[in-house]
Amino acid sequence: MTVLAPPTITRTGQTAPRPARRRRSWTGWAFVGPFMTVFAFVFVAPIAYAIYLSVFRTRLIGGTSFVGLENYQQVFTDPQFWSATWRVTLFLLVQVPIMLILALLIALAIDSGRLYGKAFFRVAVFMPYAVPAVVATLMWGFMYGSRFGLVGNINDTFGISLPDPLSPDLVLASIGNIVTWEFVGYNMLIFYSALQVVPKSLYEAAELDGASQFQVIRAIKLPAIRGALLIATIFSIIGSFQLFNEPSILQSLAPNAITTYFTPNMYAYSLSFSGQQYNYSATVAIVMGILTMIVAYAVQLRGTRKDR
């Protein structure tokens, strides 16, 4: 509708006759038509289809029936769904801060100009992001192997017995390590590019005032990249809630440690593809989507309020 606004304003001044006005309004829609069509197909239709699926239930015996909100009721009392959600929340609370602080430290170090071989570090830290997640996980999976992997080799060579990274207690931490490795470079790049646009005059002024490097970081650099920090945090929240590739691939190496409901996404996947419960799976997907939006929005609200 905002697209329509400009022509409306210009025309009201001319007091054009009514039929012409009518035609004009359709012209506007013709322009947004292509967009609306694509939007309907690509954005609205899949969501509408998921909602449509979520109010039915298909059974092997008895076929499909309309069940209203029963699937939603089931989600809210489903211990497997909530254990999965709790697991990714824990992941979010531990892994995201570690990753972002590491990324920030590296970005500040590279930006400080005191680092020897700055270009090399920038590329080296960013490189893992260019490795596809599937390949990265397979690679780490081989290293984690306590029989034939790197951990196994270390155990053999030094005659020690390291804890098995793929055991039920440690597997979430091991996945956190993989994800951190993959995404530190990406977040570092966001922070680094935000630091690049800080006007150099501020640093000169700080130097004249005799500010120390830490005072510069606290008073100039961090406030300047608050927006970037917020964006990186929101991306990481969404990424955590959508955790799927890494546990899904490691599952073949640790089938008992990574259950079919390890993360909400894996739960939706196995409901749909092993259990044929498409309807319930769609419900889980919708609920998880809404939860993610709520958390991301809450973080954004908080972040922008501080800006003012």
Binding site: P168, P255, N256, T259, T260, S270, S274, G275
Partner: peptide, 14 residues
């Protein structure tokens, strides 16, 4: 069979 490791499998690692 797809949920075998979720349930019986726990006896293998705990």
């Amino acid at each position: 069979n797809s949920i075998f490791n979720d349930t019986v499998g726990q006896a293998y690692v705990t």
